[in-house]
Design a protein around this nucleic acid. Structure first.
Length: 321
DNA sequence: AATAATCACAACCGCTCACGG
DNA sequence: TCCGTGAGCGGTTGTGATTAT
């Protein structure tokens, strides 16, 4: 037996909200608040809507200070960082972006950021880039520059030739925090206050930024079975004291690391390549410098990139809390 | 100009969690 | 401790707008 529906589906209105409905809902909540009972609310104000629908409409659209569209580079960066670190926990990500809703961020991720990150450039972006390239070329007035600009705009620089995208044009966009690279490079972290706040958030969520999730059932994660993951590079890591006394073993097996980080429960849709999952045999040097932007040399070597991303010492993390 | 394809966003659905009786 | 209920969340679908062919 399934659970009882929250409302009578036959008598509630569905589909887009009318301005009148919006006005009713908004004015009521402005005056009275939600009363902590969304189910009863539509009846009170005479709306033929499901309580859940009212709640969604309020949270995603009518609530004061809601921002729509026009995500900034800063916001892109935060979203990427958090997604890579904690997966599709949109409400948590939204909590870091004032004025943004989980729904908004989820849509933005699914329709744009994911494609941007994994080499599927939208036609709109392609056009914009091509147009920009043409403008630049025209301004330069140089045949060779023109050709190169247009070629770059098409993403045919070899990295994502089939996907029409070049990561190298987006260095300015983001410096997301890879779950295992949050502590950043020796001699101090590279990053800014945003990274710091994200790190603090992750720390709050799970005691350390790598354990943001509740402990999953113990089962071997599939991610290390794929050939793309080159575990031996892990063995070169120095022994370090991590967060909460966690030992970063020099010979930490991949599986052990995963269990420590509780990653096997994260929904990493679209991020399989980071962990060697999926059909694509994408290598580290094929993913964006967005992921590990601070090591250009590593980017030229798949193994180097893995070392960079997997082995950075969590320096200073122990002092946080 | 018509049609198809694609995109962006709003809204819905169903599940889980938290809480009170 | 169990059970019912509502809130919250994330995945999915629907739809109108835009662009390409």
């Amino acid at each position: 037996m399934g659970r009882a529906p929250c409302c009578d589906k036959t008598s509630v209105k569905k589909g887009p909200w009318s301005p009148e409905e919006d006005a009713k809902l908004k004015s009521y909540i402005d005056q009275n608040g939600t009363g902590g009972n969304w189910i009863a609310l539509p009846q009170k104000i005479g709306l033929k809507r499901c309580g859940k629908s009212c709640r969604l409409r309020w949270l995603n659209y009518l609530r004061p200070n809601i921002k729509h569209g026009g995500f900034s580079e800063e916001e892109n960066r935060i979203i990427l960082s958090l997604y890579i670190s904690i997966g599709s926990r949109w409400s948590i990500i939204a909590a870091q972006l004032p004025g943004r809703t989980d729904n908004d961020i989820k849509n933005y991720w699914n329709t744009r950021l994911k494609k941007k990150l994994f080499g599927k450039q939208s036609r709109k972006d392609q056009r914009q880039q091509q147009q920009l390239a043409r403008q630049q070329a025209a301004a330069a007035g140089d045949g060779q520059i023109k050709q190169e600009a247009i070629r770059d705009a098409n993403g045919t620089d070899g990295l994502h030739a089939g996907a029409n995208y070049s990561w190298h044009h987006h260095h300015a966009m983001a410096v997301p925090v890879h779950p295992m690279s949050i502590p950043m490079v020796e001699g101090g972290r590279v990053g800014d206050d945003v990274d710091e706040s994200i790190r603090k958030l992750l720390f709050k969520l799970g005691g350390n930024p790598f354990a943001a999730l509740p402990a999953p059932p113990r089962m071997p994660p599939p991610m290390y079975e794929a050939p793309c993951f080159v575990a031996p590079s892990v063995h070169a890591a120095p022994l370090n004291e991590g967060v909460s006394g966690m030992q970063w073993s020099s010979a930490l097996p991949a599986l052990e690391m995963d269990e420590s980080f509780h990653f096997n429960e994260v929904k990493l849709d679209g991020l399989e390549c980071f962990f060697g999952m999926g059909d694509q045999s994408m290598r580290w040097n094929e993913v964006s410098p967005l992921v590990c932007p601070n090591n250009a040399a590593a980017a030229s070597s798949s193994q180097g990139m893995q070392q960079y991303c997997l082995l950075e010492e969590p320096a200073g993390l122990g002092t946080m809390q």
